[in-house]
Design a protein around this nucleic acid. Sequence first.
DNA 1: ATTACTAAATTCCGAGTAA
DNA 2: TTTACTCGGAATTTAGTAA
Lengths: 222, 222
Amino acid sequence: MSSEHFFLLLEVLKQAGLQGTARSSTTRLARVLHCSQQTVSRQLRELEARSLLLRRASPLGVELSLSPQGQRLLQGVYTELCQSLQASGNPCTLSGTVETGLMEGAYYLSLPPYQRQLREKLGFPPFKGTLNLHVNETDLHAFLAQAKPLHVEGFQSEERSFGGLKAYRVLVNGKIPAALIHPDRTTHKNVAEVIAEKKLRDQLGLKDGDRVSLTLQEESHA
Amino acid sequence: MSSEHFFLLLEVLKQAGLQGTARSSTTRLARVLHCSQQTVSRQLRELEARSLLLRRASPLGVELSLSPQGQRLLQGVYTELCQSLQASGNPCTLSGTVETGLMEGAYYLSLPPYQRQLREKLGFPPFKGTLNLHVNETDLHAFLAQAKPLHVEGFQSEERSFGGLKAYRVLVNGKIPAALIHPDRTTHKNVAEVIAEKKLRDQLGLKDGDRVSLTLQEESHA
DNA sequence: ATTACTAAATTCCGAGTAA
DNA sequence: TTTACTCGGAATTTAGTAA
């Protein structure tokens, strides 16, 4: 099993699901995997020969589904990744580049109900502004999946309602305690908003484009 | 997401952890990966050239750790597997072969505190005996990782204490409601114990060596 | 014991193309 | 449009060693 075969099998999983069937074409798969149509054709036949997938080829395209063995192989890799990535003592980190946001964060943070809850749950009164980091969407999801959020309730004002949000304790650049804020109803998928007690830009001397890392800070089990 | 030498990188993750460093040797890695020492040596150098890992080679062996990029790549694959494997509409299944256990299961199930809790949580009084399935350890872990367990508390008798256990609702062969029982402190890693309302061996006409599938049964969200 | 070079054998890739 | 064959060249592997 070479890497190439593995990523093809992974692509079949993504398109067909674990039990389902995908209708695709070798050309289409080749584009995704950055190789030639011929290579996909050959590798699919090789994977079929190893009983890792089921294949029905015709002049209309290919129908692909994972065999029980193929399913097991992918689940095995998943389990191994799971064990190694979720192992304790692996402080999960996320890195991103500083960018200038729309100053919405500052507005929301100035609202007393958010202020109060964040102060209570984080243990410090947050600076009224956010550090916006441009991050990879996939990384952000992986990061949030591993973290245990602090829930901040939404509330109603006279004019409108404000949604809840989740806060995740982090260390910025491994040093400064802070929190990653994630609104329950968010639109931007590539932005991580970070709050801390003082202005992070000043404290770390940051400017747009600088790279910053966030390290997940788990609750102490006291 | 394309990468050469994925399985070698995965092995580094397994040995070093996400942040740590592994002391190993190309010969040792080659044995695990079923290839030659020379291939591992070259692939490590190639992975280093692509900034996927950090390497320090000496006549004593190699020290390996994942670079941030390597970490990201593995986390990316993890996330993709996560999304596809955990997607709803993917009834997670586990299959194994029937074997004859040591009849311990029957003893434990006969104890009233277990009986009572299982009846309450499962909704049926379990037959006083278990169907033992020989399963692949990795598959079992993947299966349990996806399921939401029902917790059965341990208790003390006059002579000894009995540990807690987890029960997972399943369908046997896609038809018969049952539960996979997993003691919190278990020794066997290759055995799945299944309980149901009636004796599964009789109901399904099973004999040792027969193949049986378990389909995860999620709670209805009523 | 290591790592890693050389060189020969093997495998793999993809352009061209048939069906 | 497909899939998949041929085949020449590129890439990869590994045995034999050097250090």
